[in-house]
């Protein structure tokens, strides 16, 4: 089981308090009426599914209930960075390099 830090509650808690909501920073098409089928496929279904460093959304569902983002290594499952929703996507390559991946 993972130990996860919630940036709003400022505490580390067991994974069972949290819900993972998949890849982060997938933006909904800005003008849905102009979006093509391909745009919708990309938005709804296509995922990077990275082996290595990836950004994903988590929700502290049995705590404050709020969403935040995390950068995690999907091979070791180790969290490398946790940041609040709305903050820009960090440089994953730089984080990977720092972590020695």
């Amino acid at each position: 089981m993972l130990l996860i830090y919630c940036p709003y509650c400022d505490v580390e808690r067991a994974e069972t308090e949290f819900s993972c909501r998949g890849e982060a920073h997938i933006a909904r098409p800005a003008d849905p009426s102009q979006a093509t089928d391909e745009d919708w496929v990309e938005y709804l279904y296509m995922r990077t599914n990275a082996k290595g460093v990836a950004a994903e959304r988590w929700r502290h569902i049995h705590g404050c209930g709020r969403f935040f983002n995390a950068v995690r290594d999907t091979v070791s499952d180790r969290f490398l960075k946790i940041y609040k929703t709305g903050e820009p996507k960090p440089d994953l390559d730089a984080i990977a390099k720092e972590a020695g991946k």
Binding site: M1, E15, T16, E23, A50, E56, T74, V75
Partner: peptide, 13 residues
């Protein structure tokens, strides 16, 4: 497990 992982090991819970 609830998250993407390539670890070939899941959580004990």
């Amino acid at each position: 497990d609830q998250f993407v992982s390539y670890s070939q090991a899941g959580g004990i819970h």
